[in-house]
Simulated scan of single mutants.
Amino acid sequence: MLGLLAAGILLPTAALAQANKDAAPKKLYCWNENGQRKCADSLPPEAMAAAREEINVRSGMRTGEVQRALTDEERAAQAEEEAKRKTEALAAETRRRTDQAMLTSFQTEDELRRVFAERVNLVDNSINTARYNVASLREGLVTLLRTAGERELSGKPVPDKLAGDIRVRHAQLLYHTALQASFERQRAELDVEIEQIMQRYRELKASDAPGARVALDLPPAPKQ
């Protein structure tokens, strides 16, 4: 008796589930394969990564579209492009904040130039020290070479210690000469950097002037 009752309950439930399944709109999947359009009511494994359309069988209307899966190279390129976009956006925001900081922190060009004074003095001192070392090492090397030359001219052998000192002093001279050139290059680059920042400051000041802000339809600059 209980078995019949259970069967009586389960049969309508199963019938209802089947009816719902039959009532669900069936889909037709269409995709291109080797230049040919193919359609089926189920998607084969080889078409899973392909771009496809989903079409309602009853209405014949397209109900959805799935783009093809990206290749590893395309995913890498997409990630690189996204990283580039974020980096550029961050750089733009950093520049905006830097520009605003310049306007609010410095009232005149002289105030801004004083910020660079310490860097300029540091590089200048390094150049002067390098020049002194180069001159001193060159003078010492000339003395050692003269001594070695005089011994050779007099028919005497050049001692190993003297020859070793000449090699060491020559290596030191080459090193400090390269160091001097590096400091002088830094100084030239610093001059260019300062001039570029000063030019940017002048442009910001000009655009921040009341007349310019009205012409550009910008809000008034904040009071200091």
Rank of each mutant, 00 (worst) to 15 (best):
A89M: 06
D191H: 06
A40T: 03
N34R: 02
E81I: 09
R96Q: 08
R202E: 02
R97Y: 09
N128W: 03
A49K: 10
K205T: 15
K38C: 08
Q100T: 12
T147M: 02
R58L: 01
R37W: 11
A19N: 14
D160P: 00
R114T: 15
N34S: 05
R85S: 09
P210V: 04
L70T: 02
R52T: 07
R62P: 10
Q172M: 06
R58V: 02
T104G: 05
A206V: 13
G60Q: 11
E88G: 00
L144A: 01
Q199V: 08
S126Q: 12
R95D: 01
D99L: 08
R187S: 02
V192A: 05
R52E: 02
L2N: 03
T71G: 04
E150S: 12
G211K: 12
A89L: 04
L190S: 01
M198L: 15
L16D: 01
A188Q: 15
A47I: 04
Q78C: 02
Y29P: 08
R187V: 00
L179Q: 15
E109K: 05
E193G: 01
S59W: 06
A215M: 14
S42I: 03
E80M: 12
A91F: 08
P45E: 10
R58H: 02
P222L: 13
R58F: 00
P222I: 09
T104H: 08
L4Y: 13
K27C: 00
D22N: 15
P210W: 11
T63S: 00
V168A: 01
P157A: 10
R58I: 00
D191L: 01
E82P: 04
V158N: 11
P210A: 11
A14W: 15
E65V: 04
R58Y: 00
K84E: 13
Q67L: 05
T87R: 15
R119P: 00
A148E: 07
A209Q: 12
R114N: 15
D110P: 06
T98D: 14
K223E: 05
P219I: 04
